[in-house]
Design a protein around this nucleic acid. Structure first.
Lengths: 201, 201
DNA sequence: TACGATACGGAGAACCTCTCCGCTTGGCTA
DNA sequence: TAGCCAAGCGGAGAGGTTCTCCGTATCGTA
């Protein structure tokens, strides 16, 4: 899981480099939260007390920095899937609903930083994040499907994308309750049988 | 409809100004299609053969230019709603599905230019576009609701936002059929009864 | 302590958005 | 047809951004 593809030992970082990296991630978290995923990277470097060159050495582009900011949240989301699945008092339907709510909150958080990353899933270093989330979604969805509470023709990637869509469409919405309404509707769709026997392609 | 709020006659534009405006819209259509809604406005001005100042006099910001590019498409979409409703051979369900497909195609067109505008509905001059679309959606949705083929607790704005979400989430998707699958799912939700009697808030 | 690899910082190039102002030109009026 | 003037134009430029390059400082080791 943590072994690098190259096989050789990952070169140990200098302590000041690690420190600066942490500072950058912390600053990025604040600034992205305040100004959205399009915030100035210069501002982040300034806030972290380092030069722009240092920022770009650690994070060659915006996506990588976004991914770093979100890593812990992504992990939390995956852990949440495990927790919910382990909880015996919850029905498969409830597990799915609760996890979807958590995922929506995550995607809408920080002015859509999470969504921004998931949308551009094809970015080189964003892929990991995306895959991890889809895997978590798959476990929750499969459980629901086994219990007959989710349609069988639905793929985990589609579920993720649907909720991401709700997040993206409502990030700037004035109507505060809209995201919740749309998620509820989407869950109805996941639960519903295909219309007129038309399964998904 | 076309009368200005001021009451006075809208000042007639000089012919060269009108010509330049048309050139700008045409160039914007091309450039947005090639580079997405975040394309360089300078590049658009260059392509149109005018200076940046001219672009900004006609279109004080990006949203206004986007709206201008999309005006004809928005009108086409509203006309389509009327056509579909008038067609007697179509069921209310089919009318809704067909219009939603057309809307999705519109929103996904030009790398999400349409979605970009609809998402930021609160922008000053984008509001008209947004309202017009929601009105069209309302007519199609009301028809479906009267015929019992769409749940009654759904608002037109939510329908629009759902499809916009599908568009936004799939603009950069590698999977070509995904948008269609997600729309189909969403339509199932529109059609479905609320789970466990839970209506939308 | 001395040395070399690692990492830093900031100057700067190239680009973007958006404004301002002097010059040009279309369209009316005499 | 000639002449006027407001509407409109272009482009210089201010201030911001992303991203690179390279001389310098620092860490960790021998």
């Amino acid at each position: 899981m943590t072994t690098a593809p190259g096989g050789g030992a990952p070169p140990p970082r200098r302590t000041d480099a690690r420190l600066n990296r942490d500072r950058l991630v912390a600053a990025a978290r604040e600034v992205f939260a305040a100004s959205g995923p399009g915030a100035s990277l210069n501002e982040i470097a300034r806030r972290a007390g380092v030069g722009p060159g240092t920022l770009y050495r650690h994070f060659p582009n915006r996506q990588v920095l976004l991914a770093a900011v979100l890593t812990d949240r992504v992990e939390a989301l995956c852990a949440r899937a495990g927790e919910l699945l382990a909880e015996e008092s919850l029905s498969a339907d409830e597990v799915l609903a609760r996890w979807a709510e958590a995922f929506l909150a995550h995607a809408r958080d920080q002015q859509g930083v999470g969504s921004a990353l998931l949308t551009d899933a094809s970015y080189d270093l964003g892929v990991d994040c995306h895959r991890v989330i889809v895997d978590a979604a798959a476990s929750v969805l499969a459980h629901a499907q086994e219990h007959g509470t989710a349609r069988c023709d639905l793929a985990a990637a589609d579920l993720v994308q649907l909720v991401t869509g709700v997040a993206l469409a409502t990030v700037h919405a004035g109507d505060a309750g809209q995201a919740g309404r749309l998620l509820s509707l989407t869950l109805d769709a996941v639960h519903a049988a295909p219309r007129k026997g038309r399964a998904l392609a």
